[in-house]
């Protein structure tokens, strides 16, 4: 992992790391790369992936009309809002 590649990951995840944090992250990636080698010590060619630990089945049901949360309740937790919307900076210049 290079500093440039790390910068890309930071941007992708909307973070801005300080220099010492970036340095530590590079160290973590280096260490974890070494740790990951343990997975290569097993022959996984005949082992299927396991996404869910318990058997999962699709359950279908009729749509049920319900009262949604009130708009004013949803807006109550917003850092900034107008009377009926969440408020963010202008997106189109």
């Amino acid at each position: 992992m290079t500093r440039e590649e790390l910068k890309g990951l930071e941007q992708l995840n909307e973070f801005a790391f300080k220099a010492d944090e970036a340095e530590k992250m590079l160290e973590i990636f280096g260490n974890m790369k070494g740790e990951e080698a343990v997975m290569d010590s097993f022959d996984l060619s005949n082992t299927d992936i396991m996404v869910h630990v318990m058997p999962m089945t699709n359950i279908f049901r009729e749509d049920v009309r319900q009262q949604p949360f009130a708009r004013e309740d949803l807006l109550k937790g917003a850092p900034e809002h107008t009377d009926d919307s969440w408020q963010v900076p202008r997106l189109v210049k």
């Binding site: 990951l9 995840n13 909307e14 973070f15 530590k24 992250m25 973590i28 990636f29």
Partner: peptide
């Protein structure tokens, strides 16, 4: 807004976890 909120609002362990997960 996105970058500063997430950078200030989450701690280093969470950010390290997110970056490793993203990677």
């Amino acid at each position: 807004l996105y970058v500063n909120t997430r950078t200030e609002g989450l701690n280093f362990l969470t950010k390290a976890t997110v970056l490793y997960g993203s990677n």
